[in-house]
Simulated scan of single mutants.
Amino acid sequence: MLHISNLTKRYASQTALDRVDLSIAPGERVALLGHNGAGKSTLMKMVLGLLTPSDGGITVAGQAPGSRIARDVTAYLPENIAFHPALTGREQIRHFLRYRGRPVAEADALLAKVGLGDAARRRIGTYSKGMRQRVGLAQALIGSPALMVLDEPTSGLDPVSRREFYTLLDELAAHGTAILMSSHALSEVEVRTDRIAILSKGQKVADGSLSSLRSDAALPLTVQLRPRQGCTAQVFAAFPEAKQVGDSLTMTCAQADKLGILTRITAVRDTLRDFDFLPPSLDDIYVQISRSAA
């Protein structure tokens, strides 16, 4: 659905993007991560046809970005979205529906889908930031787009609204919509995307599933041991490298040493009430990969 090859964007002596390759298949959810100024917004603007590449190419559904077909199949939700405060939610979505050549009668269903059914007749000037973000999501859903480009889409949403938002994305992906999403909320995208691409200083420094990025980062696992009452000294004796944190003993181990640690745990299982192996979070992986790239 989206194919990016050797994409480069230069501004005078500054290179905003440097030979970036990225492809997204129908139904695939890809998170685009990177520090401020890494090139995420530049890449998205070129996907939308708002900027012209200095080198390389982009196709959306096999067509050039900004072409009629590419525009028809693409939806965009910016981070900071603005609507006319005097319009109601219904009037604003009807306005967008007319732009897209769709029946205005679809407005109420779209607003209900994003949780604004009861607020459809209220003026947008009375909406909270999260509600305005939902209006933006409603306009992005017009016409069941084949590609969605989302820039910090959960900004301003409360936890319940964020969960509902990702449920919507899951439904869209299940019906074949390709999704490219940038976000700083790493704990969210960690479990709700199929692939993660990381940009650093205009270059793509990682691209893969969370498990493959964990392997590439080669970060240790965290092992948490919870002794039974009165057994802490025995567990310490078996794991002298551990440190006590609250009622648990904590240590780290390399992925390759996991089976060896598990064997040691089995040997003292009668002294433990529980244990956990905690993999590095996406935050940890992102920091490690970014530092390595730098």
Rank of each mutant, 00 (worst) to 15 (best):
V235P: 11
P78T: 01
S281D: 09
D216H: 12
I196G: 10
A242C: 10
I142D: 03
N6W: 01
K45V: 09
S67K: 10
L48P: 09
G143Y: 07
D151G: 00
A61S: 15
L87Y: 14
E28R: 03
Y127T: 01
L169E: 07
G49Y: 05
L186H: 04
P240A: 02
T52Q: 15
V30H: 13
T232I: 12
E79L: 00
I289F: 10
T15Q: 09
D274N: 14
G101Q: 02
M46E: 03
S215E: 14
A217P: 05
I93H: 05
A178W: 01
R98I: 13
R264G: 06
I4E: 05
V235A: 10
Q14R: 13
E91M: 04
S5C: 11
H35F: 08
V60L: 15
P159D: 06
P220H: 06
I142G: 06
S182R: 00
A107Q: 12
G230L: 11
G136M: 01
L147S: 04
I58N: 07
L48G: 05
I285P: 00
G125F: 01
V245Q: 14
L282S: 04
S292I: 09
L186M: 07
K9R: 11
S54Q: 02
S211F: 08
Q14W: 09
T271I: 03
T263C: 06
F236T: 12
L157E: 01
V149I: 12
S209P: 11
G57C: 08
V73I: 14
P280D: 03
T167G: 13
L172S: 04
A109I: 01
E188F: 04
L168Q: 12
F96Q: 03
R90V: 05
G208F: 03
